[in-house]
Amino acid sequence: MLYPDTVEAEILVHKPWFVATMFGVVLLLFMAFNMSSTSFAELMRPVIGEPSVSGFYGRFAIAFAIAVIFTLNVVLIGFAPLKFQIGIVWFELLLLFIAFFETFHLSLPFIREKLPFLISQGVVTTLYVSAISIVIASVIAVAGAVAKLSSNGFAYAIASFYTSFFRGLPLLMQVYLIYLGLPQLGFVINAVPAGILALSLCYGAYMTEIFRSGIQSIDRGQWEASRSMGFGFTLTMRRIILPQALPVIIPPTGNQFISMLKDSSLVSVIGVWELMFLARTLGQKTFQHMEMLISAAIIYWMLSICLELVQSRIERHYHRSKVR
């Protein structure tokens, strides 16, 4: 949270002008759509009669009802304490999403039938490809960051060429280049190692920059104190600089991990049977694309949420030495 002021501001969603504006906007918005064939219009049947012939009156009544419900909802949530507000808003947004998916008329038995394979093959592959890539990328990032900060011309040149190249090319192209290009040099490489290599190299390049800025954010005094005690470079880096750089590095690195988890779907183009590949292919035979795609989407999301939780846990851990 931002550093809060001590003066209590009036709650925004209880200000009359805000409530009025919100009501007006929602009313106009829903009048612009023709809602007469929705299930909400069916609910309004006692008021507006047959929805399809209710005309302007029907449209207005539906939009008015929605605007009243929406505004009342927001105003009421405004009274709840912060934690409840967050919970309720999350819950309602989730309901809207479910309602959206509901409109696809998904076949649940089909999902239930395919889900075990989607998880045992797809999720497992996605997870281990991402996990291995994350580890390799982190190692590359430390080495790359040290090289980029070193006064050795070769190290700097190699590291900066590397980051420039792998940040400059689309990941999809890197996947193709490694899978189709390396065999030209005589290395025939399987799809899974090729995918891991491409992900590691690409994310290693981004994380090199994150680690470099993290290392640079540490005060020079820390280097001086370490040196004055007789610590060598490796010891200083490992015990003094990197542990202090970690709190700076972790939030953007968490971002990278989440992003990599999803970008691992790009290796499906070279035929790795991970989550995305299966989501596209399992439903093909029976034209039930949406079932599998939405299932995969939800799985990706849940995996990302797990990573978010891990990230906030680690951030809290490193917060320890900063509390007075």
């Binding site: 005060d219 005094g221 820390q222 001086e224 104190a225 004055s228 003094i240 202090q244 030495s321 900063k322």
Partner: peptide, 12 residues
């Protein structure tokens, strides 16, 4: 041994 103006203790 060296003692610095800004202490330079290891904060972590």
């Amino acid at each position: 041994g060296m003692v610095f103006q800004h202490f330079n203790l290891f904060p972590h």
